[in-house]
Write a protein that binds this DNA or RNA. Sequence first.
RNA 1: UGGGGCGUCGCCAAGCGGUAAGGCAUCGGCCUUUGGAGCCGACAUUCGUAGGUUCGAAUCCUACCGCCCCAGCCA
Length: 559
Amino acid sequence: MAAADGPASSRDFVRQIVVDDGASGKHEGRVATRFPPEPNGYLHLGHAKSICLNFGISGEFGGVCHLRFDDTNPAKEEQEYVDAIQRDVRWLGFDWGGHLYYASDYFGQMLDYACHLIREGLAYVCDLTPDEMRAYRGTPTEPGRESPFRGRSVSENLDRFARMVAGEYEEGACTLRARIDMASPNLNMRDPAMYRIKRAHHHRTGDQYVVYPMYDYAHCVSDALERITHSICTLEFEDHRPLYDWFLEHLPVPAHPRQIEFARLNMTHVMMSKRKLLQLVQDGHVRGWDDPRMPTLSGIRRRGYSASAVRAFCESIGVSKANSLVHYEHLEHFVRQDLNANARRVMAVLDPVRVVIENYPQDQVEWFEAENNPENAADGTRMVPFGREIWLEREDFTENPPPKWFRLAPGREIRLKHAYYITCREVVKDATGAITELRCTYDPESRGGGTPDGRVVRGTSHWVSVAHGVSGEVRLYDHLFAKPHGLDDGEELADAINPDSLKVVEAVLEPAAAELAAGTCVQFLRQGYFCIDPDSGPDRPVYNRTVGLRDTWAKLSRA
RNA sequence: UGGGGCGUCGCCAAGCGGUAAGGCAUCGGCCUUUGGAGCCGACAUUCGUAGGUUCGAAUCCUACCGCCCCAGCCA
């Protein structure tokens, strides 16, 4: 698709810029974006927004989008993350073609460029300690002071930098700094560090280097070398743009990409910082990066969210520069929309109570044909067994029905989905007063869910035959953080965690539900969407609740 | 009190001087063998505030208020 007849130019301000640049002939009409994760953690929903933006734009404008690992800090980066990130981007539905790069691919070129800057008198080796450097930097309201090493000659700088690279100095002994302006009101321009000494093993370059470039230097150079046209990043880098441009203006790079900043995604009930997510994993608050309660792409994937639902969500929230907090329910809307159309229906009772149908023949079994998905006839039907004893959801019965209660109660009649009408005749309790059994009768005329007299039965319950039911583990999830907003000042991560974020329940499922492949998502009728967890064994299905159904009764009873 | 940003419905978000899109949520009603889904309808006389320019301003100007980011040899 050509830029000219691309998406409406008003879709968002970033695309607007891309359209304008195309119109003015900038970048020779090319569009090249990049998604530049640091391999120091797993991708989360915030990254999904960025991925959809970058890959989305390249796709819409006939451009390319590179996947580039920003691997400039070996102390924090690992191959495991590199692999997970690629898996997740692919899962989300994007393809970087042959454009897989690493900032470390350019370490050699970056070193040459650094020497160029030194030769131009625009960079110098500084021996200030970290503490001294901070003191010399000044504050937002006071200018900094020039380093005593700022005046070193080109040849001395060249020599010292060569020795830095050769590993002659200790970690922390010195840095290479850009020589810009210690009085700049922008702290980033006060002679920022370009290189520091780090004796750490790099996941790709091994021990080849002991100096590693800082983000500000590495990122713009990487973008330029790849001839990126639009370098899209988040708001906190807005202050860095003058530095981004400064490096590219003073280096003989093949291109000068344009940095554009947008607001990162924030969501209620969710922690979106890799540092905090790492802590959740390391401290054992969750079972791993792919715990279904995590906002990581691997977590929501295991939870049962589909890539297309996540993409639809990302498109719907738009892109702007305003700090925002998106309701988590907004994401759930797209998850339900997708699952409603695609998930097959199946019956499962999560909290069973036994129902005995007194007038139903002792050993009779009937098989009812049930539609797999009312939203899609092509999904066909399945057979569901019925017998004299069935399990009913405990919350579908009450001894004291409130107004507008359509479910079972003493003397009340309900429909068993796909089967018969039953009427509750007697409640059996144990010594503690707990209900152990409901004695009911059925109307043989109601077979299939209707009667010749056409009487109205408003309640319809799901059920599972006692004789045929298969038991399975069901994991019910709630927000990892109960409060919609992040941590209060001084609040510990551990204290903010919702103690009820995971509830494990032993459920009974209709036979068809026990035969599904791992990863399959189904709707447990009237309850929600559930997917099979990889923890499932051959004889023991384990389900994750992906998201509950909207429940107007719950709302009514709350009021 | 330095610099950089942002302020349009409960939440996101269009709008780019010509008289407030859309989505989520919410509230009614219809329909329903999932209290699901679906369908219909309601939902900002007003755009952080105050002035100004203009025939006309959410859009331009001025001042003020509020919120976010920046003092890593992290990204």
